[in-house]
C-alpha cells in the first residue's frame, strides 16, 4: 500500500512531463523514467519477473530506440513546438478529458464491488515458465515468429538506399 502511494504520483508526474514537455529529448527521457517507475510498481505488487522484464525492455530497448531516432531525425525547434501545441492542445484535451471522466466513472462504479483480498497471489518463476511453455506455447511461438519478422523488417526498412560512393576528386 505504501509503495503504491509513493509510486503512483511519481509515475503520473513523469507521464505528464512525457506528454507535455516541449523538448523532445526531455519528453523521451521522462518516458523512460515513467516506464521504469511502472516497473518498480510491478515489483512492489509482487510481479518481480514482469517488473524486471519491463525495466530491461522499456528502458534498455524502447527508450533507447526513441532517443536514438530523435537524434537521427533532427528534433524540431522547441519554440515551434510550443506554438504548434497551442493549436493542437485544446482539441486533444477536448478528446482526452471526456475519456478520462468516462473511465473514472466506470471504474468507481465497478471497483466498489472489488474487495481487495489480503493475501498476495504467489508468482513462482517455475510455474510461470511451465505455463508459458505448455498452455501458452502457441502464443510463445507466434511471438517468436513476430519478433524475428520485426527484426528483419526493421533492418530492411531502416537500410540506407544503396548508392555508389563517389570517388573523391584529387585537387
Amino acid at each position: 500500500m505504501i509503495p503504491l502511494l509513493i509510486l503512483t504520483p511519481a509515475i503520473l508526474l513523469a507521464a505528464i512531463g512525457a506528454a507535455w514537455k516541449a523538448r523532445p529529448v526531455h519528453a523521451a527521457l521522462l518516458l523512460a523514467l515513467c516506464l521504469s517507475l511502472v516497473g518498480c510498481l510491478y515489483v512492489a505488487m509482487g510481479a518481480h519477473f514482469i517488473g524486471l522484464v519491463q525495466f530491461s525492455v522499456y528502458v534498455g530497448a524502447v527508450a533507447i530506440l526513441i532517443v536514438f531516432s530523435l537524434l537521427i531525425t533532427r528534433p524540431s525547434d522547441d519554440d515551434e513546438e510550443k506554438v504548434r501545441r497551442m493549436k493542437t492542445g485544446m482539441p486533444a484535451l477536448a478528446c482526452s478529458l471526456p475519456l478520462l471522466v468516462m473511465l473514472g466513472f466506470t471504474m468507481f462504479k465497478q471497483s466498489a464491488l472489488l474487495e481487495a483480498p489480503a493475501d498476495e497471489p504467489a508468482m513462482s518463476l517455475k510455474v510461470l515458465g511451465e505455463i508459458l511453455f505448455t498452455d501458452y506455447a502457441p502464443a510463445v511461438l507466434a511471438m517468436a515468429v513476430l519478433l524475428t519478422a520485426v527484426m528483419i523488417g526493421a533492418a530492411l526498412f531502416a537500410r540506407e538506399p544503396s548508392k555508389k560512393p563517389e570517388p573523391p576528386s584529387d585537387s
Binding site: 503520473l12 482539441p91 486533444a92 478528446c95 482526452s96 473511465l103 471504474m107
Partner: peptide, 23 residues
C-alpha cells in the same frame, strides 16, 4: 482500496497518452 488507486492511476496514464498522441 489499493485497486482503486492503481485503476485511477492507469486511467490518468491512458488519458495522458491519448493527449500526447493527439497534441
Amino acid at each position: 482500496n489499493p485497486i482503486a488507486i492503481s485503476l485511477t492511476a492507469s486511467a490518468i496514464l491512458f488519458a495522458l497518452g491519448l493527449f500526447a498522441v493527439l497534441s
